[in-house]
Design a protein around this nucleic acid. Structure first.
Lengths: 330, 330
DNA sequence: GTGAAAGCGCTAACAA
DNA sequence: TTGTTAGCGCTTTCAC
């Protein structure tokens, strides 16, 4: 591999000039620039990123910590982060905690040590504990913490909209299948449901508890939902909603005839479920991209805080076949 | 951040010794090691990876190019790669081509320039063209090319097993819904089906053509499958199989009553489809891990070729509810 | 607008 | 076993 020296001597200039041609082209005369560029491409020169980084003290990477890449939600976040980071010349280092909260602090530490900043997505561990983030650039995705940059959806509003929709269909007894107990977004959803009950006193929310945020978790909750006497069930995410619907179908119950079901996030699975799922749509990869922007801002503004809190990331309820009018006999 | 010099002077040793304590601890006396470690932790010292890499001429990263992270298959490959790479002290840089073949050479080039080696997973572009890989460490996943290391499933056997299963159920007219035209694994599947016909001359395979390897692609193929008069359909992957099944259900056809359906890969969606899907199971993340091992081997053996070709990555047919006895009237 | 000089933090020879 | 000596390839002052 040709180095900056080879190019410099081939073009008859100093290494500094070559460096500038690639870094601040505006500071170099057009004629010299062209000469250097010609020499560079003739030699197949490509700047050595590592050397540049050593000098500038940065790593050129951002870390992304997600609970589970197999979950389409996090896959989309990753796509969004990855694409935007690449545009900014940053490399994304993804780490997947396999939904094991205990791993998070360790992984966060690891990432923080090796990157310029990390995006912490839907942490399952209590982030307050994460002293790992000490003095590091961290942006939260789907979570918030005083004094830390974040992008997140307003799940309170999401649940209000959802509850409103079900109420309009005549549902009065609605079950909620929760996600990870320590999840910020689950807490917000619960707050939203509580707010909905405040607004409509004859609405009743039956909390079925916390379940694993995968298909199996939803399946596990299905029978509880039926037993609760609810005519509609709101589920933490689409994957779980699908598990729940499958189990209901297995028991010979129809959707939405016997039970209306609502998911959350509108991952691709929602659209293509056996019964297309009503769910709260989010531009997930856009949110990932936004998180990178926030991090970049933080990196650029040399840590003097002062981040605009930012509006909640938008979303909207998408009504599909899985929700319908409440059965009379309920 | 403390540097190696700070630690060295604090511990009263040379920087080399400090370096060795972290790199080759065995070459340092226990007493000095302890002293250095104490000084290091007291100062909160952590080795600067970038500097180490500059010196050793490596980047400490591996690139992974996949067609679509949203596809659970590639998400699993990524998980496997990522986990094993981390174990080897390597950072994984994932790039997603969004199933756009034209992007692959560019991305491959980009990755090759910034990493120690790249894992090229299920390339959609013709890899022969990929001069980008010139002189670079590349390991193919789900594809093969003369003289290049690779891990791949024997899809010929996979299709033979699948065809055998359907044949035993009485199916004689079987449709095949293909994936990307330029995909190696699609070519292998077709070869396997041809081989199956050779073995059972009264078996007929109807090639329905190539479809987008997503849920929508399968849905698009469903009506063709029905029109073909086939009693069973083999689909390129699970996602597409689900799309196909959904469309069949929508048309009031039962699975497997009217049509048996087989997917491929056994991603998590197969198990949880409305009708659990018969599919060819692969330890996908294990395959990703194996690819990293091969790459590591290549990096270590300083490029003197001589890679053991390796056995095909194993897999097995998992029979679930989506396949059944062929209808009599066929 | 351009160049000379001085390292960024670390590790790989080579010596002792 | 430990230390000394040279850089890895680049960018960044600071001159000119």
């Amino acid at each position: 591999m040709a180095t900056i020296h080879d190019v410099a001597s081939a073009a008859g200039v100093s290494t500094t000039t070559v460096s500038r041609v690639f870094g601040q082209p505006s500071q170099v005369t057009e004629s010299t620039r062209l000469r250097v560029q010609a020499a560079a491409s003739a030699l197949g020169y490509r700047p050595n990123r590592v050397a540049a980084l050593l000098r500038s003290g940065r790593t050129g990477t951002v870390g992304l910590l997600v609970p589970d890449l197999e979950n389409p939600y996090f896959a989309m976040v990753t796509k969004g982060v990855q694409a935007r980071a690449r545009e900014s010349g940053l490399t994304t280092f993804v780490v997947d905690s396999d939904e094991i909260a205990e791993r998070e602090p360790k992984f966060l530490q690891l990432l923080a040590d090796q990157t310029d900043g990390v995006l912490l997505c839907s942490p399952r561990a209590l982030i307050e504990d994460a002293a790992a983030a000490q003095g590091h650039n961290v942006v939260l995705v789907n979570s918030t913490l005083e004094g830390m940059a974040s992008v997140s959806v307003d799940y309170v509003v999401a649940m209000l909209k959802t509850a409103e929709h079900l109420y309009a269909l005549g549902h009065r007894r609605v079950a909620y299948v929760g996600g990870p107990q320590t999840s910020w977004s689950d807490r917000m959803r619960r707050n939203g449901l509580a707010a909905a009950v405040n607004l409509k006193p004859d609405l009743e929310i039956i909390d079925l508890g916390s379940f694993v945020p995968r298909v199996t978790g939803g399946a596990a909750a299905a029978d509880l939902a039926v037993a609760s006497g609810a005519t509609a069930t709101i589920v933490f995410n689409d994957l779980m909603a699908i598990g729940l619907m499958n189990r209901l179908t297995e028991r010979g119950l129809s959707i939405p005839g016997h039970m209306s079901v609502v998911g959350c996030d509108d991952t691709f699975v929602a659209q293509f479920a056996a019964v297309p799922l009503t769910t709260f749509h989010i531009d997930i990869s856009g949110m990932g991209a936004r998180a990178v922007d926030l991090l970049n801002q933080q990196l650029t503004s040399s840590g003097d805080g002062g981040l605009a809190p930012g509006l909640p990331w938008p979303g909207e309820l998408v009504v599909r076949a899985s929700t319908g009018v409440a059965p009379k006999h309920a």
